[in-house]
Amino acid sequence: MYTTELEDKNKKPAPREVLVAEDPAKLVAFEARVAADEFIEPKDWMPAAYRKTLVRQMSQHAHSEIVGMLPEGNWITRAPSLRRKAVLLAKVQDEGGHGLYLYAAAETLGTSREEMIEALHSGRAKYSTIFNYPTLTWADIGAIGWLVDGAAILNQVPLQRTSYGPYARAMVKICKEESFHQRQGFEIMTVLAGGSPEQRRMAQDALDRWWWPSLMMFGPPDDNSPNTAQSIRWRIKRETNDELRQKFVDVTVPQADAIGLKVPDPKLAWNEARGSYDFGPVDWEEFYAVVRGEGLVAKDRMKARVAAWEDGAWVREAATAHAAKHVVKAAAE
């Protein structure tokens, strides 16, 4: 998930002209390989703009996995049954694992994990806007699994065939786990929607709050998405934001119907001719505000991440110091 461009909408798309600086023969060969659906590997030649886009996209994805541990981690200690606690712990642990795979895959492009983390903490790197919304009730844990992981699946399944080999392979591992995440979320929502009036209220309220931010996860509309064309050409991306968003709506609306929850969109209607749902306009002003860091809990999220990193510095230093002593000891023996 979380692979949409989170650039400012006024930023100009990477122009074809930047490619002029590249060796034309190499560029032609590269684009032919990509067009033939070959995987590009770390040692292969690639245009600088391709490398840059990938580092941005993969690190953004990794950061999203890590920041995404916070809203769900917020409920592990309050999970309402032993089974729910175990499932949520396992899920959040998976998300941390996804972060690890993705940082490792991004490192093959020559940027270290520390550099990427530094970029996150300084605000230069982005993460998915969805995690800047608060988890207020237990139903939010259901909504995140159902909607956010559901959106992630749609986003990530095509990325298993993305052109950069290490990224594609990381996605194959990750996709296997995401469907379990989506199912556990939907199961939580199903139980709440069929529960007491208070539980039903929590479930509907969670859907009301998470629906639109989930649609925003696919990124700005295609005509306002600066890097989409180039990313599709390079098979970094395989479907456009609007195509994926439509798929999400089509898959999710019947699920909401099935458990008796109402999608908070008065314009939502089945379009027989298109064989798809029509839906109302997304509030893109809100999206860009959240991208700029104005989400309700954006500051809390970064504060928590920075604190974990800074408070843990002495632990990482100790591990490094200990390892170094042992290298010295081993050499002396």
Binding site: I66, M69, Y103, V315
Partner: peptide
């Protein structure tokens, strides 16, 4: 499980969650 998301490094987040689980 209180550590989740707040550990000194990602690897420790995973280990602590795993032990908790």
């Amino acid at each position: 499980s209180e550590w989740c998301g707040h550990a000194p490094m990602l690897e420790l987040d995973l280990s602590l969650a795993n032990i908790g689980l």
